Amino acid sequence: MADTQKEGARAFGFEPYQAGTDEEYMNSEQETHFREILLAWKRTLMEEVDRTVHHMQDEATNFPDPNDRATQESEFSLELRTRDRERKLIKKIDEALERLDEHDYGYCEACGVDIGIRRLEARPTATLCIDCKTLDEIREKQRG
Rank of each mutant, 00 (worst) to 15 (best):
I90C: 03
Q57S: 06
R35D: 09
D58P: 05
L89A: 14
Y105I: 04
G106Q: 02
E121L: 00
T61D: 10
C108S: 09
R139C: 09
K88V: 07
T52V: 11
R123M: 12
E140G: 11
V49P: 03
E59A: 14
K42T: 10
L38D: 04
E48G: 09
E109L: 08
I115N: 05
E137N: 06
V113E: 14
L89V: 11
E59T: 15
A126F: 01
D65C: 02
T52W: 04
R69N: 08
R51H: 13
N67H: 12
R85T: 15
G116T: 02
Y107K: 07
L80C: 07
D114W: 01
K88S: 11
E47M: 10
L45C: 05
A40L: 04
L39D: 13
R123Y: 11
I117C: 03
G112P: 07
E47A: 15
L120K: 02
R118L: 09
R83W: 01
E79N: 10
E75S: 12
K88C: 04
Q72F: 05
E98R: 11
A40C: 06
S28N: 09
E36L: 13
Y105S: 05
C129P: 10
L38Y: 01
E121V: 03
I37R: 10
P64S: 07
G106H: 01
Y105H: 01
D94Q: 14
D94P: 11
D101F: 00
C111F: 00
I90M: 07
R43V: 13
M46F: 04
E140Y: 00
R81Y: 08
Q30R: 05
K92R: 14
E121F: 00
N27G: 15
